[in-house]
């Protein structure tokens, strides 16, 4: 995974540098967002990734003292451990919602919640 992590507004390129830039808010985002474990394994952080997968504790994984930020391990193969009510709704209700490209149909444009017009239709 060829990118850095942004921690405390700074770029971090190697797992060893996370402890000195420990930013639990952003790390939690990368973890639940699905990229942290992949990034660690690609950037000298195999050991930290293993600890995180086993314990779900950012503080333990990176050797930082403080209130533990606990996650259920292996979020992406065991989604039901994180949010059991959500997994029940996925699939069963798929047919009743717009496809993801239909964003504009809710008309959030310019702050108006309904009846947003399109633009540039004359070009077609």
């Amino acid at each position: 995974m060829k990118c850095c992590l942004w921690l405390n507004g700074e770029r971090v390129w190697n797992a060893r540098d996370i402890k000195n830039n420990f930013d639990p808010t952003s790390l939690r985002g990368y973890y639940l967002g699905g990229s942290l474990l992949v990034w660690l394994k690609a950037n000298d952080g195999e050991e930290e990734a293993k600890k995180l997968e086993e314990t779900g504790s950012l503080e333990y994984a990176f050797g930082v003292a403080g209130n533990e930020t606990l996650f259920a391990p292996t979020v992406f193969t065991n989604v039901d451990k994180i949010c059991p009510t959500l997994t029940e709704s996925v699939g069963a209700k798929r047919d009743s919602f717009p496809s993801s490209g239909s964003f504009g149909s809710f008309g959030s444009g310019s702050g108006s919640s309904s009846g947003s017009l399109g633009y540039g239709l004359h070009i077609i």
Binding site: G104, S105, G107, S116, L117, G118, Y119, G120, I124
Partner: peptide, 10 residues
């Protein structure tokens, strides 16, 4: 330059 169908869909 740009067309956005947006609320015209409804």
């Amino acid at each position: 330059d740009y067309t956005h169908l947006w609320g015209e869909k409804q």
